[in-house]
Every structure is written in C-alpha cells, then in structure tokens.
Design a protein around this nucleic acid. Structure first.
Lengths: 349, 349
DNA sequence: CTCCTGATTGGAAACGTATCCAACAATTCC
DNA sequence: GGAATTGTTGGATACGTTTCCAATCAGGAG
C-alpha cells in the first residue's frame, strides 16, 4: 500500500461557513441557515441554489456554532466501569442504538471504578455541556453529581442507586435475582453456599446480598458468615477473594457470584485448586456473558437484559424536559444450565 | 429510596458565564478568561478573587464557547463494529486511557459493519468538528473519508487499510499471524485445513487468507478450495458458514478462524454437530478473548494486542499537526493451548 | 385601486469564549 | 530624573450559528 505520507492535512485555512455559502449563492445568511436547520420556509428555487453552492464548496455545518446558539448539544455522556466487559459493552450497544435514532452522540468514559477518575469525567462532561449523563456510579462524588444535576444536566444512574440525590436510576431486581439463584442451590440440598459479592456500599451489592440472605431465611438455613465475601471488581482481588473462599476449613459446596467478573474469578480459582464444576462445587452467577454458555459445563446464570437497560436509560435521559422520569426496575431471567447439581447425589442436576 | 421525583431540573435559566464572574469579582472579562485558560499572567490576588467568585457562582467554563473560538474541540471519534465484542472493547479501553491523558474526549460509534451507518457517523463526526477519527472502516464510503480528511480531520484506520486514500493505519501482521497458525496445523500433520475468514474486500481478510495459502505453499500441500469459506462477521452468517464447512463431503480435520466471532461460530457449530475439539477436529483462531482460555479445551490463538493498538492509534491521531504519521504494523503473539492435536495420533499435542 | 394576508427574505444581535491591542503601573537601568 | 522594561489589566472583536424583526412581494378580497 502506498499510504506512507500520513494523510494529514494542514488545517490552517478557514473553514467554509454559511456566510460563504450565502455569498456564493447570492442570498442572505439567514436563508442559508433556514435551509440547513430545516426550519421556517424557503422557496424551492432558493433552496436548490443554496444546496448547489454548499455542495460546490463542500460546506458542512458546524455543530459548535449551532450548539452554542441553541444552548444544547445533542451529546450524552456514558460512564461505565470497563467497556471491555461484555455487560457494559452490551449496555453501550443499547445506548448507541437508541441515541442514534434521535441523532444524539455518545461520549464514552471508563471510570475503572475509581472515584477520582469518575470525578474528572463528570467535570469534563459538564464542561462539554452534554444534555445528559448515563452512569454506573462508583458511589462517591455526591457533590459533583449534585452540582451537575443543578446545572440542568439530566442524569440517569444504572445498576446502582445513590441515596439523597433525587436522581432516577435503572436497576434490575437484584434482590429477586440473587434470591432465586440461592433458592435454587438450597433446593438442590446445599447448605454451605459461598457468596462472592461486590462492595456493600453499592446498592446492587447490598440488594444481592439481601436476596442471598432472604433465601436462607425462607428455608431456615443459617448463613455461614465466613462464606460471605465482598470484594472489589478487579480481576486480581476477585481471584484472591475466590481462593480465600475455597480455602475455608470447611469449604462451600456451592457458590454464588454476583457478576461476571466475580464469576470468572471463581471459575478460574476453582479450576486452579483442581476442583471441578459441578462435581466438587456448584457455581451460579449473575450476567449471561458469552463464555457462560461456552465453558464446560455451561453456567447457570441470572441474566440482566443489558442492551434493553441501555435503551431504557437512554430514553430516560432524553425524556422531554419537564417530563417526570420514573426510576425503573427491570426483571432478570434465570437461565438454567449444568453448573449446579444436587448435593449427595451422583447424578447431574 | 426516595428518588421518585425524577431529578430533572428546568433548564430555563441562563447559565453562569465568565462575564458574570467578571462582574462579581470586579474585574474585566479578559482577566477571567486568562485565569481559566491558564494563559498569560494574572496577579495572584486577582486570581484568587476570581476563583472565589467562580466557586460562589458554581461557574463551569463552556467547552462550546472555547472550542468555537479556538477552532478545535479536543474530541476524537471512534468507529468500531460492535463495542460488545471484547476485541473492540479492549481497543476502546486503550483509546480511552490515552485520550484521557491528553484531556481528550471520545465519541463512540458502532457501525455494525454497515456502510450506511458508517457514513452517517462520519457525517456526524465531521459536523461535530472532532479533531480526529479512529475507525475500523467497512471498506466503503471512500468519498466520505476523503472529504473528512480534506476538511482537516486527522484519520487513522485500524485493522484494515483502504487503497488510494493516503490515510495511515495501524494493523497487525495479518499474513504472519495466519501463516503461523496454519503452519502449526500443517506441522501436526493436517492437510485438510478449513479456513473460515472474513470478506476478501477487507485487507485484513485478504492478508490472512494469503498467510493461510503461503503456509500451504511453503510445505507443498495444496489448498482445498472447497474448505476456504469467506463470510460476514455476524453471528448467524458465521455460524451458517461454519456448518457448511463441517458438512463438506470430506470434512476438514482442522480449522482456522480469523477472528473471535468466527471462532465462536466455529466452536458452536462443531459442538452442535456432536464433534469434539481436538479429538475430531483441531481449532485455532485469531483474538485472545477471555473465553478462549476458559473453554475446554482452551483454544490456541494468535493474540492481537488490542489495548496497545488503541493506544497507538490514539497517539497517531493526536500527533502534532505537520508531523508525518507513519502507518504502523504490530506483531501478533501466538498462544499455544490445547485445541489442536496431531493427526493420526491418539495422544494430545 | 387599496388593504390585507401569507410567504419569503436580509440582516442584526446574540450564544460564551479566546486573543489581540492599548493602557497603565511598577520597576529597573543608565 | 528620564527612558525602557516588565507585569497586569480592560475591552473590542471574532468564532459559526440561530432567531427575531422588519421589509418586500404576490395575490386575493373588498
């Protein structure tokens, strides 16, 4: 290939503006604007003249000028933890598709679950005057969120809720999801069920743990507190926590992981300890990521409708001003596969 | 939780501007600007007065006004195929991290490999006056690309090159990667090696196929043309193509898939046909996605350094104006695992 | 013929910022 | 003491657009 010269153009020249087009077409500036903003009325002949001149000059309207004048940007910010995680990827696909329908652009930010990074991103998005922000909040930076909201930016939280902030969120029914997974394991006869969950500051973490506990309560089985482990969502710490869980003097016979990062860590730890699923230990988790159905055995999961959540979040954040936006809770779906089996039985579940 | 009221604020009021701050601090507009753009000199006492006033008024500088005046946006566009695909996710993480270092924002677009969608996104990014665009091009819309480039937008292509466009790209050594995978299978004694690849219009597709063929040539084994299948990167068509390959009258004993979508399709098709890897058929592929190491057996792959490619692409697109940007080719790394075994042998490789 | 209505048009005034220029003050240098 | 330098400041102008207002024009009603 011959593209060795770089493809870079000197950007010194002025860009073509509506004024240039107006001059070339022999009309007034206002008329050109009316053509491109598709508002008001323009005589067909005039419109054609203008469009011809614009084509000739390779004119492209500038969103900068437009947005400055209109005081709205058509951009929304999306703050996820890690876009390489399939759950956030699916969610983002939902956001992108919905935003595109409405001619909106998406500014992507990855917080890495770091409050400081999140704060920087919030500031940047505020400066960019985005119309709205969709975020998986870290749970910190309450002041920044409040300030952004008070500046008139529509905000929607996903997956987690923040107290005292009066910002709507879209979450799944965490309690029910975790409860069903746990009930399922209990029904299979397990009574030492490990719980590998996220930080309890996050409402999703608290709710899932509550579901896990409620399931125990319902059938009168005591939760073994030393089998309840909360950890950050990074691969290394999650793996270490999973190992710790498995190294318990009396190890669990089943394990609930509350998202795909923790599930992957658990599976890896189980294998590294030379154990096998489901013969030595049953494993269930949140998030129906692709690998859940590719590994052997395929993992029983509670699926969150990530794409649809992205779609809903986008609709919420773009709701007409003045419209009340209600927080939303979506249902999870349990997908039974083969990663759990009855305790004290040699036949697979 | 009590956030049932919506968190929406009427946006009717004027926003606070530098003029307001200037008035409140009893200084001139220019001085306020100097404080926030951090250019020129401002007396410490004055600066403090201004910062106090700004804090008091909750002033946030507007990127719109700044960008309009400066004629640059600090935004770059990223056009991928599907952000829920781990390869693009990793790449995007690299882009985000690098962009953030330089205070840049990333506008994310997913083309779905559709030329029409790609064109719309290019237009939108041009209107947004992004400083640069990083794209996995579909191979179409040459005019749009040319036009964007001529408007002064820095463009970098990833994964694929486009002829006659003088736009730099960052690619992996596709030919070598595919050659090594194929050589490996040939060395294990396979001679009927299926090839499941992308459309040949894409240079990456052509180069990988060339590597596959070269490997055969090197050892004097003829390519079985009816085992060479090119397909689009959608799950359904890829799966159908994989099935077709397996249903060959004389089926292949090994398979090369040229990316993770095709690899997943191949693996699923193999299993659905009741075959097992590697006993019935060996499978190797491009892309070291997480599941490649979680399935049984773990898949031998050629890994593309997605994150680093994102980083490099971002550096290229943000290179100082006037600087020549050289196209870049990065090396792949072959990761041997257990998804291939010698033909005519009962011991695993 | 005049008045009125509606469609079409041109141009001025913002939107919020950066930057140039002139003005001024406080030093410093001879 | 005067001139030159340096640091600091205010204000006008421009960036590319939208939008308001007034003006023009064609044509129908009276």
């Amino acid at each position: 290939m011959s593209n060795t010269t770089g493809g870079r153009r000197e950007n010194g020249g002025k860009q073509t503006t509506m004024r240039d087009v107006a001059l070339a077409a022999g009309v007034g500036l206002g008329t050109v604007s009316r053509v491109f903003s598709n508002v008001g009325s323009v005589a067909p002949a005039t419109r054609e003249k203008i469009e011809a001149a614009a084509r000739e000059l390779n004119f492209r309207p500038s969103a900068l000028g437009r947005d400055l004048k209109r005081r709205t940007t058509n951009n929304i910010g999306l703050i996820v933890t890690d876009i390489s995680n399939n759950f956030y990827g699916e969610f983002a696909q939902g956001v992108l598709a919905t935003a595109k329908e409405q001619g909106r652009h998406v500014i992507l930010c990855a917080s890495g679950e770091e409050p400081e990074t999140e704060r920087e991103y919030i500031d940047l998005l505020v400066e960019q005057r985005v119309d709205g922000i969709i975020a998986f909040p870290t749970g910190h930076n309450l002041d920044s969120w409040r300030s952004a909201r008070d500046l008139g930016i529509n905000i929607v939280f996903a997956d987690r809720e923040l107290p005292d902030l009066d910002i709507p969120s879209i979450v799944v029914d965490n309690e029910a999801g975790a409860r069903r997974l746990t009930e399922y394991l209990l029904a299979l006869g397990h009574s030492r069920i490990g719980y590998l969950g996220g930080p309890s500051e996050l409402t999703s973490g608290g709710q899932r743990e509550a579901g896990y506990r409620q399931a125990h309560l319902d059938v009168g089985v005591a939760v073994k507190e030393d089998l309840v482990v909360r950890t950050r969502f990074t691969r290394d710490t999650a793996y270490a926590s999973a190992l710790r869980l498995l190294e318990n003097p009396v190890p669990p016979t089943a394990l609930v992981a509350t998202n795909n990062v923790l599930g992957e860590a658990a599976l890896t730890a189980i294998r590294d300890r030379g154990l096998s699923v489901p013969d030595d230990i049953s494993l269930v988790m949140f998030d129906d990521v692709p690998w859940a159905n590719l590994v052997e055995p395929p993992i029983t999961v509670v699926a969150q409708p990530a794409w649809q959540m992205g779609q809903s979040a986008t609709r919420m954040v773009l709701a007409a001003d003045g419209e009340k936006v209600q927080p939303q809770t979506v249902k999870t779906e349990m997908v039974l596969r083969r990663s759990a089996r009855p305790l004290h039985s040699s036949a697979p579940a």
